[in-house]
């Protein structure tokens, strides 16, 4: 279950109750773990799918709509990626890795390491329900704009 602190933390990213979008990237081999990834979102972040979701054969192309007890909406987008060797596990994309690392830690998520800097941004790996490994990644652009 998520603590009050955790709930506040989720709301703090969404102060105007705008829908939150959570993007997940996965490679073909990790399709069997998608159900576990969805369970993670449901149990740790406390969002419930508005409609029943079946992921055994891989995700549908449409985004999955979820909602929490306060009526906040979360849109889950699952995207299969190819030719990106740096994406070894199912990846939860974030716009602030340290904030979500802190938030997930409070929610009881087991992290395998501390956030580390890579060529594509700041990342940290964590364990899901069935000891499946996931990545929390904040992609960063290091070239001057």
């Amino acid at each position: 279950m998520v603590s009050q602190d955790q709930k506040n933390s989720i709301q703090s990213i969404n102060p105007e109750h705008k829908p939150i979008t959570l993007r997940l990237s996965f490679v073909k081999d990790s399709v069997p773990q998608l159900t576990d990834a969805l369970d993670f979102v449901i149990e740790k972040l406390e969002f419930i799918p508005i409609e029943k979701v079946y992921l055994r054969d891989g995700p549908k192309n449409e985004p999955i709509e979820l909602k929490d007890s306060n009526g906040n909406l979360l849109t889950l987008i699952m995207q299969q990626i190819e030719n990106r060797p740096e994406f070894k596990y199912i990846t939860f994309h974030t716009d602030d890795c340290l904030r979500d690392y802190h938030k997930y830690t409070h929610a009881g998520v087991e992290f395998i390491s501390r956030p580390e800097y890579t060529d594509i941004g700041l990342r940290v790996d964590f364990l899901g329900h069935k000891e499946n490994r996931y990545t929390l990644l904040e992609e960063r652009i290091y070239t001057d704009i």
């Binding site: 602190d5 703090s12 802190h102 960063r140 001057d144």
Partner: peptide
């Protein structure tokens, strides 16, 4: 620039929202 800029901007974003968690701020 780079990671320093990203992290400082995130920290700034948090304090502007009056986020009061010492642990997170110390992480930044």
């Amino acid at each position: 620039a780079g990671d320093m800029k990203y992290n400082i901007l995130h920290l700034k974003n948090q304090i502007e929202q009056d986020f009061s968690n010492d642990l997170l701020i110390n992480e930044y």
